[in-house]
């Protein structure tokens, strides 16, 4: 991730990936980087060096499955959630929401994410 507040996002990268895959079914690496860029209006730029190790880690943990398709003269590797991945996404999103609420209470109790 290349930006000033990258450290704040770093711990949430896996959850971001799981959430995107949960919403969109299957995605490939480049598509994930572009989608994140688009959703955060360019605020968060996931680098290749951060994305693929995260994807490989989730795959090794059995949370992601892989599908290969031929597109434009080359092969494309799609990632999708496994059953365990779907359950884990729910857990991690809950954890993230609780974390955001706690931070909100600490930093600015009058502000709300609802």
């Amino acid at each position: 991730m290349s930006m000033g507040n990258s450290k704040l996002y770093k711990g949430s990268l896996n959850t971001i990936i799981l959430k995107l895959l949960d919403e969109r079914g299957k995605m490939y690496g480049y598509e994930i980087t572009q989608k994140v860029k688009e959703l955060t209006k360019g605020e968060l730029n996931i680098t290749e060096g951060a994305l693929y190790p995260a994807l490989h880690k989730l795959e090794a943990e059995g949370l992601l499955d892989v599908e290969i398709a031929k597109v434009d003269n080359r092969l494309r590797k799609y990632y999708k959630l496994t059953e365990a991945g779907e359950k884990e996404t729910v857990n991690r999103l809950q954890e993230l929401e609780e974390f955001i609420r706690s931070m909100q209470n600490l930093v600015n109790p009058n502000w709300s994410i609802e």
């Binding site: 490939y28 690496g29 290749e48 693929y52 892989v66 080359r74 092969l75 494309r76």
Partner: peptide
């Protein structure tokens, strides 16, 4: 191969 194909695709997309 498992890493090469996705790096190649990402590289080409970029």
């Amino acid at each position: 191969l498992d890493v090469k194909i996705e790096v190649l695709d990402h590289f080409a997309n970029g």
